[in-house]
């Protein structure tokens, strides 16, 4: 697995799109750091970009790379290594390469423009969330590539999953909350948002930043929840499930698939 990982990682690090990805985030964060002084504003703006783009790029880029790998996968399968090692190797290779791009894109401008950010917990938390989302959505991308031999279908499904989790899901939550307006909804709202990794990342950050609005009654309840050990445990658990869920799908698909 390490061998496959190493090769795909190096291969991707030389890819101009990986470099473009790092450059994009570097420009974004440099612009944000340069233009607005207030710490929270930078982080919120960066968060909006991260939550929308990181899943999208992870899915699409992961799929693009793996569909390409998919073509020479026979060559790998003929070697004395397991399918698990091959696909896990690629999954980790892509995720790590993308994560490294993110890291460079966020850390380098901070280092040059505002070194204090390197120790800003919220900034670091944002990067951690971006990395976790990268792993989750790259995992989904790997699974989709194995599931759909037809690239168009695969990309379609990937885009749909992204659109669903990044945008539509919150709309659905809103509709559910509005429909059930007469009932106590705090727990339901919390549970529903915990089912979506993008929402989890967003809430984790939002509740870290001192948003006074969140300190209204309901906000305080939520804020308290995220502050408790139980909340932290549930969040970690939620991210854990989301991290392993695509891997489980991927491996079970890889085990049964004919190439």
């Amino acid at each position: 697995m390490l061998k496959v990982f190493k090769y795909s990682f190096l291969d991707l690090m030389r890819n101009r799109w990986t470099i473009a990805y790092a450059l994009f985030f570097a420009l974004c964060s440099a612009g944000l750091l340069y233009l607005s002084g207030d710490g929270n504003k930078v982080i919120v703006s960066a968060m909006n970009i991260v939550l929308l783009l990181v899943p999208l790029v992870s899915v699409i880029y992961g799929q693009m790379y793996l569909y390409q790998v998919r073509e020479y996968v026979e060559l790998l399968l003929a070697q004395p290594i397991s399918r698990k090692a091959i696909f896990m190797g690629y999954y980790l290779g892509i995720s790590t390469a993308l994560s490294l791009s993110l890291l460079v894109g966020f850390m380098l401008p901070a280092l040059l423009l505002q070194p204090s950010y390197l120790l800003n917990t919220n900034w670091l938390l944002l990067i951690v969330i971006a990395v976790v989302l990268t792993f989750i959505f790259t995992g989904l991308a790997c699974w989709l590539v194995l599931k759909y031999d037809n690239r168009l279908k695969g990309f379609g499904a990937g885009l749909f999953i992204w659109l669903l989790l990044a945008v539509l899901y919150d709309g659905a939550i809103l509709v559910i909350l509005l429909l059930l307006e007469d009932y106590p909804l705090e727990k339901l709202a919390l549970v529903l948002s915990m089912l979506n990794p993008i929402d989890m990342g967003r809430m984790l950050l939002i509740f870290q930043l001192d948003y006074s609005a969140l300190m209204g009654y309901t906000g305080a309840v939520f804020s308290h929840f995220f502050g408790t050990r139980l909340g932290g445990f549930i969040l970690t658990f939620g991210f854990g499930v989301w991290l392993s869920f695509p891997i489980v799908l991927l491996l079970s698909k890889a085990r049964k698939k004919d190439f």
Binding site: D11, Y72, A78, P80, S82
Partner: peptide, 22 residues
């Protein structure tokens, strides 16, 4: 079963596909 037996086999796939950047 497993993967080890493939050590004794050299297989040439029908279509030559490689990691293109290498």
């Amino acid at each position: 079963s497993g993967n080890e037996y493939r050590k004794k086999i050299s297989y040439l796939p029908q279509i030559a596909r490689f990691p293109e950047n290498l």
